[in-house]
């Protein structure tokens, strides 16, 4: 449907006339720009595109997209999206959520959306903090995070969004960084092309309450060593090709190996296989400084989508049945009363 657009729209055509209200310098601006650019590059049809969000800074997103948009309630965007998509599978549904919205209050819905494999894109803006409510620690905050609600530091272990998604049965997993404008459109296009639920974690900097929390791997100067952009079928190399990711077959753990003279095979560097779920689990868990952070499309393994299966079953179950409301309400054992004064004694 998208390729039927007569005139090609520009990124700016996907912006509304509403003033964007995020804090100056917030990572959300970059993501908005990246998404609008992606829409234009994909030739998306605004009227067939729906952005659905929950509550939080990121959830203001739909107001800034010149598409259909539904800013719902905290954590429930996946549930609303499920109804939208079941009612009209032709719509292109994008869910915008955050670490609190998608993994705390809405964690249950997220899990079920992913396992059902509803055809949609989930953009989870992870900033490891509750921004809109003024800076409390979130379910992705690292242990020891000091915040208004944890003045002595948080003590609970954080959730890892991609591991959660993988465990929930997600069949498309990708990661990106707010400022990675070069890679973002391609990753979002891949997510869009994937039929089923696509889960994209976007590391988003909250300049006000959690500035630079991802600095250890987002800092441009060090990024060659701290980031690995995965490509299906390509060796997993980073540090300008001087290092790679290999598998220790003894411990079944990943390790970083040095690559001499570009001979990655000799170094045992593995080729990225998006279909490999076990590897996806290992790649997700890589942390700086021991490892680079895995970015790009980590896992993809398509399967029939939920709304399609529901539709198919509805059609199958209806086959050969007569749609007669009158007959339906008369079903079962009935009897006729002929005259009003009936009294058989």
């Amino acid at each position: 449907m998208n390729d039927m657009t007569p005139t090609k729209l520009k990124a700016a055509d996907f912006a509304t006339d509403q003033e964007v209200r995020w804090c100056p310098g917030c990572g959300d601006y970059a993501i908005l720009k990246g998404v609008q650019r992606t829409m234009a590059e994909m030739g998306a049809t605004p009227e067939n595109t729906v952005f659905i969000s929950g509550i939080g800074c990121s959830s203001r997103f739909p107001y800034y997209m010149e598409t259909y948009g539904f800013h719902t309630i905290h954590g429930r965007a996946p549930a609303i999206a499920t109804g939208v998509k079941l009612a009209n599978p032709d719509l292109d549904v994008w869910i915008v959520t955050g670490d609190g919205d998608g993994l705390s209050i809405g964690g249950n819905h997220m899990m079920h959306l992913l396992r059902r494999n509803l055809d949609c894109q989930v953009l989870l803006f992870n900033n490891e903090i509750y921004g809109l409510t003024k800076g409390q620690y979130s379910p992705t905050s690292r242990v020891g995070t000091r915040s208004p609600s944890t003045p002595y530091g948080s003590v609970d272990a954080p959730a890892e969004p991609c591991a959660f998604a993988l465990g929930s049965g997600a069949r498309f997993l990708a990661r990106c960084i707010d400022t990675a404008q070069k890679q973002m459109p391609d990753i979002l296009k891949r997510a869009h092309a994937h039929k089923g639920a696509s889960f994209v974690e976007l590391y988003q900097n909250c300049i006000v309450y959690n500035d630079d929390v991802f600095g250890a791997f987002t800092d441009k100067k060090e990024s060659a060593h701290t980031q690995i952009w995965l490509q299906h079928g390509e060796p997993m190399l980073f540090a300008n090709g001087e290092k790679g990711i290999a598998l220790d077959t003894e411990t079944l753990a990943l390790k970083v190996v040095d690559v001499k003279d570009g001979d990655w095979q000799a170094a045992g560097v593995r080729v990225h296989d998006e279909r490999n779920k076990v590897m996806a689990g290992l790649l997700i868990a890589m942390r700086v400084p021991d490892f680079p952070v895995a970015l790009g499309v980590i896992y993809e393994n398509p399967a029939p989508s939920f709304e399609q299966d529901v539709r198919t079953q509805n059609v199958e179950a209806s086959k050969g049945k007569v749609v007669d409301l009158e007959a339906l309400i008369k079903k079962g054992q009935t009897w006729e009363v002929n005259q009003k004064k009936l009294r058989e004694v």
């Binding site: 429930r76 549930a79 609303i80 499920t82 939208v84 998509k85 079941l86 009209n88 819905h109 079920h112």
Partner: peptide, 14 residues
Amino acid sequence: IAAICASIGASYAG
């Protein structure tokens, strides 16, 4: 919650 939200989503979609 998901039950009512999905129903709201369906109404939104027509």
